[in-house]
Design a protein around this nucleic acid. Structure first.
Lengths: 232, 232
DNA sequence: ATTATTAATTGTCAAAACGACAATTAATAA
DNA sequence: TTATTAATTGTCGTTTTGACAATTAATAAT
């Protein structure tokens, strides 16, 4: 019978695909890898799972260490475990995708954190299977965002409908009718209209909204239908 | 800088939650654990990830070994990696859920495979965090099945609408209106009506249907809306 | 001061989907 | 021939959807 002692042991790592939104385009946060092999090549932010932490813990620790941010939206994606994915030694990696408010990160930015934002469509080639991870994460983000109100995680506390609109178009790489989008997003009952207006970028100005946190957290599992002609 | 050699190494396993349907109720397939600790206790079917296989490979191998079945519907769920989840040695486990036609398995059944079906709602207590895994798998099955036509995987090639209807009710633990269900499921265009009828269980008999494999595989990613009042 | 311009906001309407509800049909058993 | 049972098909008002256009609030130009 199989015994524990006979079984091979592996390294286990986490890798995070960190998405942000600059108001126009979807971006991801990359770092220069600090260890061999492939040192100084661009890579996802990741690290090994320590002895006293779960993979979720490890992902949060890595994010904290590399961006200074805590409590970010983090979701387990899938495990990457092809035997030869790491040339040095067998390493299985748990992929996570994270959504952060790009401005929060920029506020934290200093020399301790040598991460850099790249346009999702204009990013350097990454090491190992990280390119595949990014592709998978993007697909999963699109899937999830079509059903659940998670894209708010990439916007500031105060945001406008047009901002949200562009974000949805970016994530889904498609045009969405302004009027129908507006109707749909407000009909969720998740938005609270503020008195203040955002006057940058237009003469008329667009009203700020904030998220109704109570409803948001109460209904974070609800199936919405946020995309027209919903297909994946 | 962190080096590979300094990092701890762990065992990596897979565990499969195997769902089946006996025509009335949802069931899961359990095995008696063959190694210490907790030997002879009921557990999910699982095994360690070998040196030359991916976790997906391992899950398929385990399923083949314990049921004799190949090519079953298998989907990665999530990783279970709390440091102390295995009392002997740190082991991370990748959870999978599988959908199989219960009759196919019964056909294969012999002494080599000492697995046993249990009603999902009347199952023995399982080892480690396997109870949590079952709960998670059930939730995920419900989620996925509400959007994608995967429950067919638990039915024979020929099946009737009433069979499908009961299966949907079982998975979602709710009553579904027969007429609306029928309309919805046929409007997907995924079903092909056969001339033959199933005469067991009713006087009138119910027409057999089969899956339109072409459309099924072409549209396996399509978002359907298979549950009324869809919530999670 | 009036007008042009720009982007945000609100509005219309026909088609489709939905959900609640009941009648009909095809078989067997009495 | 009739009663019984379960499968199948049907109705209808409401809501949601998606395609499309008009109005409004501000600033810039004349």
């Amino acid at each position: 019978m199989i015994e524990y002692s006979r079984q091979p042991h592996y390294l286990v790592a986490v890798d995070c695909i960190v998405f942000g939104f600059d108001g126009e385009h979807l971006k991801i946060l990359l770092v220069k890898r600090g260890l061999e092999p492939e040192i100084n090549k661009w890579s996802l932010m990741g690290g090994f799972v320590g002895a006293n932490e779960s993979p979720d813990d490890a992902a949060n620790r890595v994010l904290k260490k590399m961006t200074g941010l805590e409590g970010v939206y983090l979701e387990q994606m899938q495990i990457y475990g092809e035997p030869d994915r790491d040339p040095i030694e067998r390493t299985l990696s748990v992929g996570y995708f994270a959504l952060i408010d790009i401005h929060k990160y920029e506020a934290q930015l200093n020399d301790d954190y040598e991460a850099e934002w790249f346009l999702i469509n204009d990013r350097p080639k990454l090491i190992f299977d990280h390119n595949q991870m990014v592709a998978d994460a993007r697909k999963k983000l699109r899937y999830k965002a079509a059903l659940h109100p998670i894209l708010f995680e990439m916007l500031p506390k105060k945001f406008t409908i047009p901002q949200l609109h562009i974000l949805f178009e970016e994530v889904n790489d498609t045009k969405i009718d302004t009027r129908n989008f507006s109707r749909k997003i407000t009909s969720t009952g998740l938005l609270i209209k503020l008195a203040e207006k955002d006057r940058t970028g237009s003469k008329k100005g667009a009203f700020y909204f904030k998220l109704d946190k109570k409803k948001y957290h109460a209904n974070s599992q609800a199936f919405l239908n946020l995309m027209p002609n919903l297909k994946v």
